[in-house]
């Protein structure tokens, strides 16, 4: 639903710079543009050691660094999208689905299941931006709703790690209604006095921001994360002004009272554990 831009700072022409990167050993930071030794970057959980930019993680990688080893059991893995509107933009949605499934090695943009975080059993959903920009269609809406219902049944806490461009336009109005479906399920979990932690990662916008991501009992954002309802480009076009510095960054949301804390990736698991142990 919303698009966003990545800041690009180029000193030398990208072509020339790219040519200088020895294959596979170095990567370039999306934010500061510095070259990072790939090993160092991986050891640092894909956070730029120079500027603290948090690179996107795949859902699988997120689970690896969040859930106690060997405890995650995935649910509803087989749920897959269908092109029920026969939506064709530049490409048929049907083709986009297959392409993204091959690219992301996932059926859709979310993994759900139960696992232990610092020894506490938790229902966990992780969105994967790599699959059609983490957009929410029927599959994401249904998998998240089923997960919430399971958490309510089992009386366990819930963690949703968001990263999404918003509702999936190719599923039209049905994708819009996944917002109300997931939120209504959350309300039943809430009514049962169970904990919901929302972890916002880069970027979280549109229909995901306007539904489950924004109503966690606790909301945590990773550092340097873009979070908003409308994308910066849309806002700029509407108000015809340059946006303020750090607008819609996690630190900006903290300042405006919209989230509880900004956390560096290496501390996320510890922070989650402390909340789970306090509340559960």
């Amino acid at each position: 639903m919303v698009w966003f831009r990545k800041p690009k700072y180029t000193i030398v022409t990208p072509q020339a710079k790219r040519a200088k990167i020895p294959d596979g050993l170095w990567i370039r930071c999306n934010d500061c543009g510095e070259l990072i030794f790939k090993k160092e970057w991986e050891n640092n959980l894909k956070v730029c050691p120079k500027c603290n930019y948090h690179f996107q993680l795949r859902a699988k990688e997120r689970l690896e660094i969040t859930v106690d080893e060997g405890t995650f059991e995935e649910d509803n893995k087989s749920l897959a999208p269908i092109d029920f509107l026969k939506f064709i933009d530049k490409k048929p949605y049907k083709e986009r689905i297959i392409e993204n499934q091959e690219k992301a090695q996932l059926n859709d943009a979310v993994i759900t299941g139960c696992g232990y975080i610092e020894k506490i059993k938790t229902a966990i959903a992780v969105l994967d931006f790599n699959f059609m920009g983490g957009s929410m269609g029927s599959v994401m809406g249904e998998k998240i709703t089923r997960l919430i219902e399971k958490a309510t049944d089992l009386k366990i806490p819930l963690l949703i790690v968001s990263s999404s461009g918003g509702a999936r336009m190719q599923e039209g109005i049905i994708s819009l209604f996944q917002m109300s479906k997931t939120v209504a399920a959350l309300e039943l979990h809430n009514k049962a006095k169970l904990l919901f932690i929302s972890l916002l990662t880069h970027p979280t916008t549109g229909g995901v921001t306007a539904s489950f991501a924004s109503i966690g009992d606790i909301i945590i954002a990773e550092a340097k994360t873009l979070i908003g309802f409308a994308g910066p480009r849309v806002i700029e076009q509407t108000i015809k002004e340059k946006l303020p510095y750090k607008f819609q960054q996690s630190e900006f949301l903290l300042e405006h009272g919209l989230i509880d804390m900004v956390v560096n990736r290496k501390n996320v698991k510890n922070v989650l554990g402390r909340f789970l142990h306090f509340f559960c």
């Binding site: 309802f229 303020p244 405006h256």
Partner: peptide, 18 residues
């Protein structure tokens, strides 16, 4: 879609209404 709307939590306001 505006600066003030984002500052005051447009996403949260919609989600909470739902």
């Amino acid at each position: 879609p505006g600066v003030g709307a984002e500052e005051r939590g447009q996403g949260e306001a919609i989600a909470r209404t739902l």
